[in-house]
Amino acid sequence: MPDHQRADARRNYARILAVAEEEVAAHGADASLEQIARTAGVGSATVRRHFPTRRALLEAVSRTRIEALCARAEELTDQGDSRDALLEWMGDVVAYCVSARGLAAALTYDGSPVDPVHENSCSWSLEEAGGPLLRRAVRDGAVAAGVTVADLITLAVGIVLATEHHRDPAAEADRLFRLAVVGLSPLG
């Protein structure tokens, strides 16, 4: 939210974001933008002015969790075994995506052209944060060369989206993540 906006625009942004956080928590990535506007007491055009795409709204709602995941990556960067550190962080990414409805959708790579103003900042932030963990693991021979953080995020998102309607999504996502980890190992 730019600081140069009028006070009423900043208040609208804060109110819309608070309502959106509740709606996304209740309904996931498909939360109704119209319902968010009604509950926030603004028009749908106001919601779209602040959040021109659903992804922009989901990213704003997910920002605190993304920042926590980035901080966690930094904590783990120089700790212990490089593979264990990377996998612990990826496990955190999966767990956060399961517990924070809408986060997996905010992290998806949909193949659309990147809009420099509204690019996927959540994924970019995680790619930047996870880069040192992955480079260390590749350098140590603990992860196959050619694996990217974008690959890992796509893997995590796919697992979370595939398990979101499971009876116990957290347990199933964790099980599938552990199963997929074998594929990260270098062949040899």
Score class of each variant (00 low, 15 high):
residue 144 A to I: 02
residue 34 E to Y: 07
residue 161 L to S: 08
residue 32 S to V: 03
residue 173 A to G: 05
residue 124 W to A: 10
residue 120 N to Y: 14
residue 92 D to E: 15
residue 46 T to W: 00
residue 13 Y to F: 15
residue 122 C to E: 14
residue 169 P to H: 02
residue 163 T to K: 07
residue 32 S to L: 13
residue 86 L to I: 12
residue 21 E to F: 05
residue 50 H to W: 08
residue 152 L to V: 02
residue 30 D to N: 03
residue 83 R to P: 00
residue 124 W to F: 12
residue 38 R to Q: 05
residue 13 Y to P: 10
residue 165 H to M: 09
residue 181 V to R: 06
residue 170 A to P: 07
residue 152 L to G: 03
residue 82 S to A: 15
residue 118 H to V: 10
residue 56 A to V: 15
residue 85 A to V: 05
residue 102 G to R: 13
residue 9 A to E: 13
residue 59 E to D: 03
residue 104 A to H: 00
residue 43 G to P: 15
residue 118 H to F: 14
residue 103 L to Y: 03
residue 47 V to K: 04
residue 127 E to P: 10
residue 67 E to T: 11
residue 184 L to H: 02
residue 167 R to N: 12
residue 59 E to C: 01
residue 128 E to P: 00
residue 10 R to V: 12
residue 30 D to F: 10
residue 158 G to E: 13
residue 56 A to L: 11
residue 26 A to L: 15
residue 87 L to Q: 13
residue 47 V to P: 00
residue 129 A to N: 05
residue 144 A to K: 03
residue 48 R to G: 07
residue 148 T to S: 06
residue 40 A to W: 02
residue 23 E to V: 05
residue 75 E to G: 09
residue 72 R to S: 03
residue 100 A to E: 14
residue 179 L to A: 13
residue 66 I to D: 06
residue 165 H to T: 01
residue 153 I to L: 14
residue 55 R to C: 01
residue 67 E to K: 10
residue 33 L to D: 00
residue 110 D to M: 04
residue 4 H to K: 07
residue 55 R to S: 01
residue 48 R to N: 02
residue 27 H to F: 14
residue 65 R to E: 15
residue 117 V to E: 01
residue 14 A to T: 13
residue 61 V to A: 01
residue 10 R to A: 01
residue 146 G to W: 09
residue 95 A to E: 09
residue 116 P to E: 07
residue 159 I to N: 06
residue 18 A to F: 01
residue 54 R to M: 00
residue 116 P to F: 10
residue 75 E to P: 11
residue 56 A to P: 07
residue 90 M to N: 00
residue 139 R to L: 11
residue 104 A to I: 02
residue 171 A to D: 12
residue 21 E to A: 11
residue 97 C to L: 12
residue 188 G to W: 01
residue 65 R to T: 05
residue 120 N to F: 14
residue 126 L to H: 08
residue 43 G to D: 15
residue 183 G to D: 15
residue 46 T to V: 13
residue 66 I to T: 08
residue 33 L to G: 07
residue 12 N to W: 07
residue 156 A to T: 09
residue 33 L to W: 05
residue 166 H to T: 02
residue 108 T to F: 10
residue 21 E to V: 11
residue 25 A to R: 11
residue 91 G to W: 15
residue 19 V to Q: 14
residue 60 A to S: 11
residue 173 A to P: 01
residue 61 V to Q: 02
residue 16 I to T: 08
residue 145 A to S: 09
residue 105 A to T: 08
residue 47 V to H: 04
residue 37 A to S: 03
residue 37 A to Q: 07
residue 17 L to T: 13
residue 186 P to I: 04
residue 30 D to S: 11
residue 169 P to E: 01
residue 14 A to W: 09
residue 53 T to S: 12
residue 103 L to R: 06
residue 36 I to T: 02
residue 178 R to E: 12
residue 87 L to T: 15
residue 18 A to N: 13
residue 131 G to E: 15
residue 89 W to G: 00
residue 72 R to L: 08
residue 168 D to W: 06
residue 160 V to E: 03
residue 96 Y to M: 10
residue 177 F to L: 05
residue 10 R to C: 02
residue 34 E to G: 07
residue 82 S to T: 14
residue 100 A to G: 06
residue 23 E to R: 13
residue 91 G to R: 15
residue 32 S to E: 10
residue 24 V to A: 07
residue 165 H to Q: 12
residue 165 H to D: 10
residue 181 V to A: 06
residue 6 R to N: 09
residue 109 Y to P: 11
residue 4 H to M: 09
residue 178 R to S: 04
residue 175 R to K: 06
residue 81 D to I: 07
residue 50 H to I: 13
residue 28 G to N: 08
residue 127 E to N: 12
residue 149 V to Y: 11
residue 28 G to T: 08
